[in-house]
Design a protein around this nucleic acid. Sequence first.
DNA 1: TCATGACGTTACAGACCGGTAACACCCTAG
DNA 2: CTAGGGTGTTACCGGTCTGTAACGTCATGA
Lengths: 196, 196
Amino acid sequence: MADGVVERSRPRDRILETARDMFHKHGIKGVGVDAITEAAGTNKMTLYRHFESKDELIVECLRANAAKAGAMWDAFETEFPGDKLAQLHAWVRKAAAMLKADGRGCDMANAAAELTEPDHPARLVIKELKEAQRERLVTLCRDAGIGQAELLADTLSLLFEGARVSVQTVGTEGPSTQFVRMAEGLIVSFRGTAAG
Amino acid sequence: MADGVVERSRPRDRILETARDMFHKHGIKGVGVDAITEAAGTNKMTLYRHFESKDELIVECLRANAAKAGAMWDAFETEFPGDKLAQLHAWVRKAAAMLKADGRGCDMANAAAELTEPDHPARLVIKELKEAQRERLVTLCRDAGIGQAELLADTLSLLFEGARVSVQTVGTEGPSTQFVRMAEGLIVSFRGTAAG
DNA sequence: TCATGACGTTACAGACCGGTAACACCCTAG
DNA sequence: CTAGGGTGTTACCGGTCTGTAACGTCATGA
């Protein structure tokens, strides 16, 4: 619950966590700062003492998401140290789990859909994170000894991105249920071309 | 330009077209009814004489998008009558063209990202259209004699959806540029399994 | 000619938004 | 004990939002 976040931690952290949760569930423009601070058990003044604007809060939320995603990648390495192919399969499983988790898509993608101003500060953060994620996936594929690593990484990436959109439009029981099959099939197929 | 829409047509049509354009460019919550009516060369009262609320206007815009998408599918049949495989390739080319057209993703997906209320009238329309599109693609794959038509259709569908999200986050020069390669490769691969 | 209906204009209601000012409080460090 | 910083509270500003009321205009068609 959100109440868990409200338990004693610094107001700034509570605001950040609560904002992340509410932005994820209701969208960025669908949540006002008053609602965030109230849910975080604090008030608007305290928010504006820690964040100079709502836009900055948005950016910080996205950065926090990026950090969490980065930790996820690190977990693959600690779980299967050195075994890049196992890490790639772990990524597939993790991605599939995220698809079932809830009916909301990627926070970055959703933010990009909402924040259309080309010079919005969040857009730079979004682009950076997405490119970083792509880089990690490309590296993983390459280190797993797969030929055309970039193409496989991009394909898997688009597939996952599309699946996250799909759960948001037709629900978790739609085409996204086939994600693991698709991804594993692609990996097999690309490993085949590497050997041949 | 939007001015082209303003030229003499019925106010309702101008409002609908202008709203579609502005929702697409700036998002739904990023555009107010005042801005729409002004761009459409009319006024708010006229809008509310034709649409009982902004939500209904949104729904009508999405339905118009659906109709346009349906016309696109029909065009494939008229261009390559009977040749389902050619129509499938036409779909791939058309999809790729849409990726280059602008940096905004699918209006349905964007609307789903913004309108988070589970009982929002638009959500039903979005789901219906997405399922209809999936059905058409599945049928096309099946009629093209491809084994596992559902899986190919879903894969292509997710890939395209992901590519549209990608152009919105990292731009038109990102992984989405490989969409045709990915799609054609998949079609070849699935045709292989059908023959074998 | 005149009635009808579609459309335009102005003004407004009521709510919500992001953001700020002023002041009271309380815990902690010195 | 006391000073100070982080926090809470209340009230407010100006703006924007959806939606409505009242009235004026104008073309059309009987």
